[in-house]
Design a binder for these strands. Sequence first.
DNA 1: CCTTGACTTGGAGTTAACTCCAAGTGATAC
DNA 2: GTATCACTTGGAGTTAACTCCAAGTCAAGG
Lengths: 128, 128
Amino acid sequence: MRIAEVSERYDISSDTLRYYERIGLLPSVNRNGSGIRDYSEIDTRRVKFVKCMRSAGLPIDVLIKYMELVQQGDKTIEARKEILKDQRELLAARIAEMQATLELLDHKIEVYENAVLRAEKAILEIEA
Amino acid sequence: MRIAEVSERYDISSDTLRYYERIGLLPSVNRNGSGIRDYSEIDTRRVKFVKCMRSAGLPIDVLIKYMELVQQGDKTIEARKEILKDQRELLAARIAEMQATLELLDHKIEVYENAVLRAEKAILEIEA
DNA sequence: CCTTGACTTGGAGTTAACTCCAAGTGATAC
DNA sequence: GTATCACTTGGAGTTAACTCCAAGTCAAGG
């Protein structure tokens, strides 16, 4: 699969895909005879994983480290697990923080709704 | 209250507090005779609000717009409500995305746990 | 054969959000 | 009274993560 199709399928620009490969976040993709990238199914699974992690806010340097360990095979399983556990906890904390902000927003929106309603009621009473 | 105390209380650097004031995210804080900022209780409530919204990832430009509307009084209530509703939806979407990633991480961690357990079991069997 | 269009590279530029710095001021400690 | 310290300003520098660009290659269509 060519870069344009991967880009469209996972909604990541070609520039970003090449950038990820350059910095080692995605391992080198195989090329065809003319040097053009040909993404394998495994490559696309990696793209999907990286996209998912990046969308959740995991930092690139941590993900590079993780992908390096993946390349090194089974002896790095413990280290990889620790990275994922650390990031899992950080992510859970961020979600909790955002959830609290969501509730605050809901509360403020409700206060505004009531303010609008009171204002409308006041206008009706004047008109009546 | 001086900037250092606000900084410590809300865990925002003095530089950031001054930066927020410069770009209009926080309204000008009153100064004492020697030009030093003296944060009022209202000021600190605003700091707390901005800190909360920023931590949840709301962009600065949107928050500046919101704070400008707050300064303009009651006639902007409807507009402010719309901003908060928009941001609420964006935030809810991001939380959902992150929640899905959290679950994926949990799944991967579990897979790694099992891999480690299998490896340990294999070693025990060799030793036995 | 020539044009078109997707691809390639290395490197430069951009964006958001800070973060730091130099030079200066005023109040307090010794 | 002078050293120290937190504060002030305007502006420059940094960081993370892209994003864009110029110049070139290659395959397919007319």
